[in-house]
Amino acid sequence: MKKILVTNDDGIDAPGIKALEESMSELGEVIVVAPLSQQSATGRGFTLGSPVRVNKRDDNHFSVDGVPVDCVFIGMTKLVKDVDLVVSGINIGANLGIHSLMRSGTCGAAFEAANLGVPSIAVSIESTPEEAHNMEGSHLFDEAQKIMKKLVSGIIEKGLPGDVKMLNVNVPIGEPKGVEVTRLGEEYVTPLLKEVEDSVYVIGGVIEPKEKPGTDIYTLHDERKISITPIAIEGFEHGIIDFGEWLKKI
């Protein structure tokens, strides 16, 4: 059986990672190595020079008192031998565009796996935490589970094509109107800085999806399709044509 390492940035007890584990368990042996607590927007950061504690819940579940990249690095070098694939998510909130991709802990975990030579997928759904809470017990993750099963089955059977090392998948709320292979857009969430008292600030953001056809942002927001962006570590624009042909065959 293929070994699939599952992680996220919302924490090991988040509903999205449980949905992802459930869908992946049909395709291989699943080992969950995920942060103990919420680690959104930690990007590709490591915990350097400070101890990182790992708690073994059982043979297939480990919580890490660190960031998502720590989870993948520790998981692949210490906890799990011969990982075949890493999947990160299912994140609450889309990770669209180059800037969100760089900030996202969900994507950072997938990047680390790709750097370590293992194919990876980051998957997110278009939802705010409030919407997700209100939809608890519904079929919030169904479409993400479906596309992930298809993609992972394809990777297990054929591998990723050409220079592609990682996929960034974003799924709209509701029934998707299709699936599109996309390139990265620019800014999806515009950062905002709020001063709550003298010299005390809160960093937030507002979603402002303004993009052209063919980008992940446009595909999700304007066309209401699942966006799949192939990532080559050597450069973000590589691999789109190869991956489009690959996707048709799975």
Rank of each mutant, 00 (worst) to 15 (best):
I147K: 00
I147F: 03
I147Y: 02
I147Q: 05
M148V: 14
M148E: 09
K150Q: 09
K150I: 03
L151D: 05
L151I: 02
V152Q: 12
V152W: 13
S153W: 07
S153C: 12
S153D: 12
I156A: 05
I156G: 08
E157F: 09
K158M: 05
G159H: 03
G159N: 13
L160D: 10
L160I: 03
L160Q: 06
L160K: 11
P161W: 14
P161N: 13
P161Q: 13
G162P: 01
G162C: 10
D163W: 00
V164K: 03
V164H: 02
L167A: 03
V169F: 00
P172C: 12
P172L: 07
P172D: 10
I173G: 15
G174R: 06
G174V: 06
E175Q: 15
K177W: 05
G178I: 07
G178R: 13
V179S: 15
E180H: 09
V181T: 06
V181C: 11
T182V: 12
T182N: 15
T182S: 14
R183S: 07
G185M: 05
G185P: 01
E186F: 09
E187F: 11
V189S: 14
L193R: 15
K194E: 14
K194A: 08
V196A: 14
V196I: 15
D198I: 01
S199L: 10
S199E: 13
Y201T: 04
I203M: 13
G204L: 03
G204I: 02
G204N: 15
G204C: 09
G205L: 02
G205M: 01
G205S: 11
V206F: 02
I207V: 10
E208A: 04
P209Y: 06
P209D: 07
K210E: 03
E211K: 04
E211P: 05
K212Y: 03
P213A: 04
T215G: 10
D216S: 12
D216H: 10
Y218V: 01
T219A: 09
E223Y: 01
R224N: 06
K225P: 05
